[in-house]
Structures are given as C-alpha cells and as structure tokens.
Amino acid sequence: MTNDNFFSIHNLSISFGGLMAVDNVSFDVLPGSIFSIIGPNGAGKTTIFNCINGLYSPDSGKIIFQGKNIIGLKPHKIAQKGIARTFQNIELFSRMTTMENLMLGRHIHMKTGIWTGSTFYRRGSRAAQEEIKHRERVEEIIDLLDLQVARNQFVGGLPYGTQKLIELGRALALEPQLLLLDEPSAGMNSEEKQDLIFWIKDIQDELGVTILLIEHDMKLIMDISDRILAINFGKPITEGTPAEIQKHPEVLKAYLGEDEVIGHAA
C-alpha cells in the first residue's frame, strides 16, 4: 500500500530576502489520497505549491514525483508529468470561452502544430479530427462539473464561483495524476461548497486523482482530507489525520484560535 515514491517533499526551504517563506517542510502523499495543507495567511502554503509547479526554485530540499526529483524542471515540463493546479486568485484565460479554456487544458495531449493547424479545411483534416476528439473529452468534464450553461461564454464575465469551477475543470482536462487545489472554495457560498465537496470526492474516487489541497474552510478540510499538514511562518507544526489535527494544541493556538471554530468544524 505504502508508496513513498509517488509524491513526497523532503526538507523544502525557500527564502525571499531575509524571510524564510518555507522552512524545512517535509511530507509524503499517498497515491489516491487527499492531503491538505492548512495554516494562517502568509504561512507559506501557496509558496509550497509554486515550488511544486516550478514557478519558484527552492533554496534546498527535494520534491519527488513518481520517483524523480522535479526541482529545476520548467513549469510546462512538470505539467507534462501530470501535475495540474488551480490558483487562489483566478488565473483563467478571461477572453476565451469556457470550452476554449478547457481545451487549453488538453494542450499537452494534442499534437496539432502550426502547419496542420493553419491548413485544415474540412472535417476529415487531421487538426479538425483532433479538435473534435478532444472536445468530446472536454464535454465529459463540462458534464461532470455542470458547466453546460457557461460552455460558450467568455469566462471573464461569469460569476466567481463558476470561474473557480472552470479552473478546476481546466486542471482536470490535463488528466493529472496529482492535482493541486489552492483554496478552491474561496468566494463560494455554502451551497456551492457542498457541491465542491462532492466533486472533489468524485475526482478522488472515480478518476483516482491524488489531491493536494490548500483551504481555509475548516469544515471542508475536516470532511474530505485523509491527512493534514499544519504550518505556520513556513515551519511545519504537525501532521496527522483530521481528528489529530483538531486536538493538537499548537494548531489551536496558531491557526484555529478559538474553541468555537473547532466545535463547529467537528
């Protein structure tokens, strides 16, 4: 069962000037599980994601994905290995339609180049065939996330919650093995959050995607996580199951703060 080679981080550290944003963080993610990272604002959660994506290059440490260290690879290479993510502040292609956004998620699975792309002229042309094939895959994701209404609309004008979902859909279109979700429920109302919990569970169960999650909504975190890592000021506080995390005195002090929040979450 245990497979430490799937995804693990060893002694990851990165500093910006004198600030240690991430300080000696290590953890293991089991394939097919949901692993959450919690911590107060500025704790370094998103920085860890940016390191995994290759957007930042860490000062020291290793990030192992499927047995290989991925530090130093360019972001698009890391995407090709099967790591997709969503962003805390929406990073959609705002002047593209939902369909086109999701199609961009298929980028690494498509081959059309400049010549075949610019010279297709009929349904049977190679570029057109490929477009059609991948649109069918995208349609499945649109169905899964109930995005039919937004399908041919420009995403810039859609509601915030919908945009968040489209980001999730775009990440899914890449068919990732590891999905990084950076505060997927931010800005959603409680109804949308409920749906989101189902979808994340679906993604885990049906698609078999391993999920790395950053969230502030404790109810959501405690509901779906298999394991949780709590960090503060870049330093890991503790790691454990949701039940353990809820009782850990350091976590209470650093992050959850009040008993009421815990009572509510449990």
Partner: peptide, 26 residues
C-alpha cells in the same frame, strides 16, 4: 484557422495569463 486550433489557443492563453498557461503545459 491557426487561431482556432492548438497553437492559437496557446498564444491567447499566454496573453491572458502566462502563469496559468505555463502550469497547463504550454
């Protein structure tokens, strides 16, 4: 035609959000 297919989409993606394009494998 180019703008309707893969390469054109990558171009537009870079314009709208180069970070997202990068992390999606462009």
């Amino acid at each position: 035609n180019l703008m309707k297919t893969r390469v054109g989409r990558a171009f537009i993606a870079i314009r709208d959000s180069d970070i997202a394009a990068e992390t999606m494998g462009v």
